[in-house]
Computed example of a mutant assay.
Amino acid sequence: MPHNLPSIYNPFLGRQAIQQIIHVCLDQPRCKPVILVGSGGIGKTRLATVVARNRLHLYPDGVWLVNLTDIASDAVYESDGIANAIASVLDLPYREGVSSVEQLLAHLEDRALLLLLDGFEHLSKEGEALLSRIWLRCPDVHLLVTSRRVLDERIGHMFVLYGLGCSKGEEGDGALAVSLFEERRAQYQWMPLSEEERRVVYRICSMVEGMPLAIELAAGLTVKRTVQEIAIQMASDFYMLESSLWDVPVRHRSLQAVFESSWCRLSVELQGCLARLAVFSDDFTAVSAEQVAQTTRQQLAALQKHSLLAFNKLTGLWHMHPIVRFFAERALDG
């Protein structure tokens, strides 16, 4: 079947349960858009690509990856920008006198294909409305969307991703995270890890709470450093986690770049809240947030919507990822 999915050079580890759930959703008649939400570097695009590749045989008109990260957020022209990006990937000719959106819908309404829309977080309600229009008018077009921002829950099925070994249904002992580090390290080092080194790698994976991108960046540093050296520096410096490899997208070449792309989409008010909340070295209550960091419940919810905070319903506590905390502490000073 036709597609433009990237080649897979590395095996995909874990996420078996969520993969099955996504397939079940997409197999339903008139399936609403499936939306994968999570912080930058958590593995949304990779998971979506794996799911899409495993469904190639189901779509006679193909599976198509559309990168939305460069589309300007503009309530007036945003839907046209998205439509043009999709049309470009599908190689659709442009007809004057007809809107880009209408041309796209007319083309899609009798097609059977999967669109993987990657990087939706910066787009507005106008963009979200286009998702609903495609779903309503094009019954055999399935939408798989990735976003750092939580979208309107009425649009489709929303799944929030966490680090390997940190989400319900994943291996809680960190085995997947360590396996990911080992697999990526093997590209640079042929000697297997010793038991002592594996314990250090577990500590490295715990420092970043199983975030796949952080683990891969750390594994890449083993070209010139021991895992012990990496762990010692990581304890106080996440700036070190970066890569200069040509095949790594610019937005994923460092944890700093990942954070800054989320930071710049916050209002000045929310930037201040996030920076003040970084004072908490552990989980905190909404009351503490208001008293210590002058942050309201509504502001906490807004930061959660941007995948910069998480809320534990069982404990009633808010959680900030250590990587977010590290860069948020320094963001205002920078």
Score class of each variant (00 low, 15 high):
E96I: 02
G97Q: 10
I21T: 14
K125G: 11
N67Q: 14
R46D: 04
E102F: 05
Y94V: 14
L131W: 07
S79P: 08
R95N: 14
Q103R: 14
D74W: 01
D61E: 07
L113I: 06
A87D: 05
P33M: 04
K125H: 13
A87Y: 02
L123F: 09
K44L: 05
L131I: 13
C25F: 08
G38I: 06
I82Q: 04
R111S: 12
P11S: 11
S100N: 10
C25V: 09
D91C: 07
A106C: 05
L36W: 06
E121A: 13
G119H: 03
S73R: 12
P60H: 07
L26D: 00
F120Y: 07
I86T: 01
L68C: 13
A75L: 10
F12P: 00
R133M: 12
V89S: 06
Q28W: 03
L113F: 02
I82D: 07
L65R: 08
A17R: 15
S100K: 11
N4P: 05
E121C: 08
S100P: 00
L56T: 15
D80H: 14
P33Q: 07
I8N: 00
I86V: 15
E126W: 00
L47Q: 11
L5N: 04
L5T: 03
R15W: 04
L108H: 02
N4V: 06
A75W: 00
I22T: 09
V51Q: 02
S7P: 00
A112Q: 15
